[in-house]
Design a binder for these strands. Sequence first.
DNA 1: GACTCTCGTTACCGCAAGTAACAAAGTTCT
DNA 2: AGAACTTTGTTACTTGCGGTAACGAGAGTC
Lengths: 214, 214
Amino acid sequence: METTGRTDQERSAERRRRELLEAADRVVLRDGPGASMNAIAAEAGITKPILYRHFGDKGGLYKALAVRHTDALLDALRAALDAPSARRERVEATLDTYLAAIEANPQVYRFLMHPAEGTSQGEGAFDVGLHSAPLLRRLGEELAEVIEERVDLGPESALLSRVWGHGIVGMMHAAGDWWLGERPCSRAQLVRSLADLLWGRLAAAGDRVGGPGF
Amino acid sequence: METTGRTDQERSAERRRRELLEAADRVVLRDGPGASMNAIAAEAGITKPILYRHFGDKGGLYKALAVRHTDALLDALRAALDAPSARRERVEATLDTYLAAIEANPQVYRFLMHPAEGTSQGEGAFDVGLHSAPLLRRLGEELAEVIEERVDLGPESALLSRVWGHGIVGMMHAAGDWWLGERPCSRAQLVRSLADLLWGRLAAAGDRVGGPGF
DNA sequence: GACTCTCGTTACCGCAAGTAACAAAGTTCT
DNA sequence: AGAACTTTGTTACTTGCGGTAACGAGAGTC
């Protein structure tokens, strides 16, 4: 049959692509985001031009890698986000899921946050807004959706949910990044502290000495 | 006097350094963070080796640039942070100062967030924790200090203030980044939304339909 | 006048991204 | 079977960047 023939080809191409991605993954995890295309090709047992035929350029390869990992993390987060528990517990579960993921393999996490290097050879006009890690954007949008569909925020809910989605994700990310570097406390403590912040403890706390506190 | 001679030399060297930094600034603002050393040298009217004599390597130059801008931004933020007003107003003023700064020239902002590229030629062992933008770390620490010295947080104030410092800075950064890209609302609206989030409105809001809300 | 020290140059090395040109294998059409 | 084509892979090249070595010229110093 002709269909089997074409399907075989396509399946073979896809399998090859997955193999290449896995090799690239190994190299990036070992050598960091600056791994060379030669190194990746060598790890995969082939040479550069094949990589370029499959992924176009280095950006394409890295994007494919990032999508893989981002999808995996997003699945885990969605599960925590959709659990049938009280809001605070769910927030804590989501925070903990994220932190556990970046704790489990920081290399992946690091790679996801610095995917865009670009030879900069291109046009000088760069648009701010596309530069930062796409993972954070996706997370922010995802969280925004969940917030808007679940929480009653009054008339401005569309705007508020998005601001909060991105804001909370950024909070989680920055705190997690700092925590990974310094390890000043347990994961559970960090989760509780962040949830406390989101629960308005900053506003509720009293001033320390004289004058108006922060 | 010998001192005048040496002072003249030192002053000349420092002036030269400042000139070079300003040239580098212009190029980086024009071409983005991937600007080449050749381009920077050309803009300064000289050639590469001089840059290397002054700054060691590209990282040194970029670090010097980053310190300049970071200091400037930090000064502005400290002013907002130290104003003699109520806590909420101060938080809003700080948020607004930061957002106004990144709105005023996004190129600088973008450069500050992606300073560490590294040829990756070096050792494979990379330490997570040093990779992210140093600006965010400095901001987080600064804010943590202010929080701890002004707000009464009970026994765990040392930990809480640092978690919150980095978390709030991350929130501000991520929300600002998204906002810069999409411009979904005015700066004032964004500031209010973020302050509302910090003031516990997420915890206070009711569920939307049936079941436990987010 | 020789000595040195700073500022500057040109010319080069190494390396990585990306590409062109070619080689060998299987597939398909006649 | 044999010619044409697509797939899969190669080697060898170009371009451009970070970084450095080696050299050149002017200004103070003994």
